[in-house]
Design a protein around this nucleic acid. Structure first.
Lengths: 182, 182, 182, 182
DNA sequence: GATGAATGAGGCTTCATTCAT
DNA sequence: CATGAATGAAGCCTCATTCAT
């Protein structure tokens, strides 16, 4: 994974993968059909453990805003600025050339994440925490700033550092209403 | 550009570029030092004409919301779902391996686009169109849904079509307040 | 070696080397970093076994002239008119473009050969076999005719055959005095 | 010539030649059939003006030794340590691959030079300046130290500087007898 | 005559894949 | 199962040569 993340699919050498894995090059072919299927399987394997994190419903105690905030902070801490941010970049980069991966990613991560988010938005609307009813149709709006933060860290952090958590607060204020209007 | 967009830097063959350009392979080297600098120059060339579009201030007549909306619609129409969306994907994908490109893109597009957006946000706050004062610190929040729309079109449109303009309206409602709450 | 000798460094094709070696082209790169280092290593390898021959002191029995003569004849037989003569030509030809080779050749062959020759000249002067004392400063003078013979065989033999051994006798007569002036 | 001398035939680029000549690449083909024939003609052209120098009989006034010495010094000054030394090296290097050049060089330079030298040796023997009668059969022996000096300057001067003129004196002492035995 | 942009064959090198051990 | 030497297809790049202007 680290090799593919660092160089992309085409520029990654099986030699380097084998060396880092501590096995001989031939050994790879005992486990994978070829480079492509290895790439696809590795991406899948890397995503799976993260899926359960995303779909575990947050502690249902407090406000929906608190739940969304907890989810978003977890996402930022576990993804933005880590190797996983580059995994997101890798999927964006290679997705069109590996439809199987884009499909898998949509099915396992995107659609589930959006469904969970949509449920939270619905709940917030019901409770009156969110006033914009159309938001339920576009849960992407809730997630967009996190995506941008992840890509920003990966591409532009050295040009202009971004305080992702502060941005998140402003974002939540926009959606849930400012916390301390007074 | 089309070749690089379709396959990424490493997987693109100069043979194909030459064939599509209708020249012999050697001819490429009369114009570019090597594959890398060709890639960088092509990206630059593809971006430049778009920069002026982004930085041209919108007709200052009506409300700020109208100006932002006009800008955003233009962006969606000219980028999302077109080849330019793939150019954005390409920059995200290859940025880390071509710092010169990431630098150029940040300098020419990102920082300028954000500055223009920040000015509009400031104006809207002054006029009372936007109530959230912190937004001026995070113009990325204004742009994030457009980025997500662009990537969505490129990666997941076939799984679940996205009505980007409708999403944009909801986004603007969140920021400027719903148009017709009544 | 044969390929490099026949065509020089630049004009030699790795294809031909591989074919002659009975391996695939890629196999070469398991043993050598690139064409240049292969050339350098091959030259080194070809020279090494000859160095010991040169520095083995001749049987110390008879006169110094006999020792020098034995050495020179060995040199002529083993080099002039053989592939090794072309190796000398190759080093002369490519030396300036491969300083590493010129350095190695000077260190391993030239300086050692001259040192050995200087010792013999010194001995001969001590014993009174050679009357010209300055010769010890220019052992190159002792060796020059052999060098010329080697190059002659390689370049002009077909224009005018050279009896190198007879020329050697005349040379030795000049230095040690004619054998049978009477 | 300078380009061929600096890199050898195969590694020299017509681009560089044209640039240095101040003409366009195509212009070369108005004067030469191809790279090979250009090389051959250039070598010929470079040699010709030197031939007359070599064959001009030295001032016949003094001793033969003085005449040989004048000739040899001229050769050393005009060749050793100059670009012409590299021309000699070039001919040695490319001779076998360009028989036409080797032929020309033998006919115009080597055979004439040796003939001139042979005549001088014959004269010296007649006059009693040289006692070794066989030398007339091997004029190469007279010239060998100069060849070695030329190659030495080109290849090993930086390892061990050679005082070619002092070496020449010792060489002449060997052949003509030491100047001041007392 | 002169130009130099264009050509494309050919060279060096890389690397995914195989297979005898 | 594991190895890693060997393969050879394929890619990047160079450069002698051509030819329309």
């Amino acid at each position: 994974m680290d090799e593919f993340i660092a160089r992309g699919f085409a520029a990654t050498r099986l030699d380097d993968i084998a060396r880092r894995a501590g096995v001989a090059k031939g050994t790879i072919y005992l486990h994978f059909k070829d480079k492509e299927s290895m790439f696809e399987e590795l991406i899948r394997t890397a995503i799976v453990p993260f899926v359960s994190r995303l779909t575990t419903p947050p502690a249902p105690g407090g406000s929906v805003r608190d739940m969304v905030e907890a989810l978003a902070k977890m996402f930022l801490q576990e993804v933005a600025g880590t190797r996983r941010a580059d995994l997101v970049r890798l999927i964006i980069a290679e997705g069109p050339r590996f439809p199987a991966i884009a499909d898998f990613y949509y099915r396992e991560v995107v659609s589930r994440g959006l469904a969970a988010m949509r449920a939270l938005i619905q709940l917030a609307i019901t409770r009156g925490e969110i006033r914009e009813p159309n938001l339920v149709a576009y849960p992407q709006l809730m997630i967009a700033p996190m995506m941008v933060a992840v890509l920003w860290k990966s591409l532009f952090e050295r040009h202009a550092p971004l305080d992702a958590e502060a941005m998140l607060q402003t974002h939540l204020d926009l959606i849930f209403g400012a916390r301390r209007p007074q």
